[in-house]
Write a protein that binds this DNA or RNA. Sequence first.
RNA 1: GCGCCCGUAGCUCAAUGGAUAGAGCAACCGGUUUCUACCCGGUCGGUUGGGGGUUCGAGUCCCUCCGGGCGCACCA
Length: 552
Amino acid sequence: MNPDALAAHVAAILAALMQEGRLPSVDLPEVRMERPKNRDHGDYATNVALTLAKPAGLPPRDIATMLVEGLNAVPGVASAEIAGPGFVNIRLDSAAQGELARTVVAAGTDWGHGTSLAGRTVNVEFISANPTGPLHLGHTRWAAVGDAIARVLAAAGATVATEFYINDRGVQMDKFGASVMAAANGRPVPEDGYHGGYILDLAAAIVMARPDITSLPEDQQLIAFREAAYALQLKQQQQVLALFRTHFDVWFSERSLHESGAVERGMAKLREQGHVVEQEGAIWLRTTDFGDDKDRVLVKADGEYTYFASDTAYYVDKRARGFDLNIYLLGADHHGYVNRLRAVAACAGDDMDENVEVLIGQLVKITRGGEEVKLSKRAGTIVTLDDLVEEVGVDAARYTLARYPADSPLTLDLEEMTRATNDNPVFYVQYAHARIASVLRNADELGIDWQGAEFAPALLDHERENNLLGMIGEFPRIVASAAELREPHRVARYLEDLATAYHRFYDVCRVLPRSDEQLAPIHIARLWLCASARQTIANGLDLLGVSAPERM
RNA sequence: GCGCCCGUAGCUCAAUGGAUAGAGCAACCGGUUUCUACCCGGUCGGUUGGGGGUUCGAGUCCCUCCGGGCGCACCA
């Protein structure tokens, strides 16, 4: 029996009580089945009697009494009792609980996946950097968290596309080109240009590939350098993200919006809806109609489109491509965009609460042994994604970034991220996986065919087995809540608790027969439990884009 | 000035309005005759920034004050 099935029983009992007239017929609140922190409160607990008390006009304990009566008749429920103001604490038979291991092994890599977001088509846009330099820490947080959000949404049944918006248009591209050109010609980089050491590398690479470039006239040379540097820098970003296992389904160029006519189409769409006005020679979108604090310019008085015009066109384009939910993951310095992006959706005739969602990621600070690390060898200003991966590795970087909610500022220490002990949660979780894999390997070598043997779930009645099973049973709900709340850190925190539950089990419950022992049903049952724990950890790590090693 | 985010143990952080606010680190004390000790058990540690409110119940919601971060372009 899993918690959802138990919750369904509770709902059915309450519905029956209403049918019989013992409870007034009111809207049934969502039945929440919690795993109590304090195990004295049972395997599961529900507060539904408390939430039902007010609408039903009955004391919570009276409702709980009727619920307990019904629950005690449910097969698999060992006991149900009232506690405190009206909580109902439930204990399951060990057999009912142990059956879960079979469910998990049968589900395999699908275990934990659900349908709570089935039918939703979601676009997750993140990082979306200028192709004018290496990706830095601000991008890195979203590279880990954004990718994990996309994976978790997909696990909840949504159809998900990840997208990187390349800001390849506008004056910063010219500044970038001018900087590289200056470096290639041995001149100082312009004051308002890009000054990182990588500019020199780009200049050298471009001149190497195309020695005649510096003899072009200035205006042509600027364009040639700009385009060549753009191509190289974008490729570098793509390579480091691939190395980081952050996959984008679409790399969307801002320029392409202008080249394809999408900007005109977007403008037309907004005009249709009646929120485009002309004032003082410029064309504006009246975003203040929908809660923005000022209107935004689409076309400047000189006839040039603004960046904001691209944004609106991009949104309209995404909608036209069939995404009913567009999630934007932005850095803290972009929080001013939240209202404006929501207003764009509303101006396009959409529902700003349904069709668009903007998440803000706060800053990440890096320390090494307590000292803040600011300088990057290459960029000259800030720590880059390359630097981080090089120093701590992909698994540690991804996991560490993904285990904190993105909306609070974060300080990470490089030394702690690389320590290979339980100081470091990523190793702790991975170690649990490797440890189980080792036990299963040993079982195999001993010729134990646990999958073919009779599995007696009722034997898993040790407190630590019960606890481990309970933790495993939580996984689908953890995934669903991580997706619903866009908070994949919940998966990481869960995995740490699950790993602890496994280690505690392993510490006390011998899985394989010792050399002087015969193979017994308890060994088989524990192997099923091990296999289900291993599957759950592997599936959870996969949602975070972290590897689940067989050996460590 | 206006707006957004944040404030929880010495440090880094959890906690979807639920029961006694939890982990890891740091400090101290223990544990393995055989499966991975990268493990397990224990001790120490809190006025959840202050104050008020909402309710059966508030770290969580509302108001206010204090402190920190960020943003307020016909730039991109």
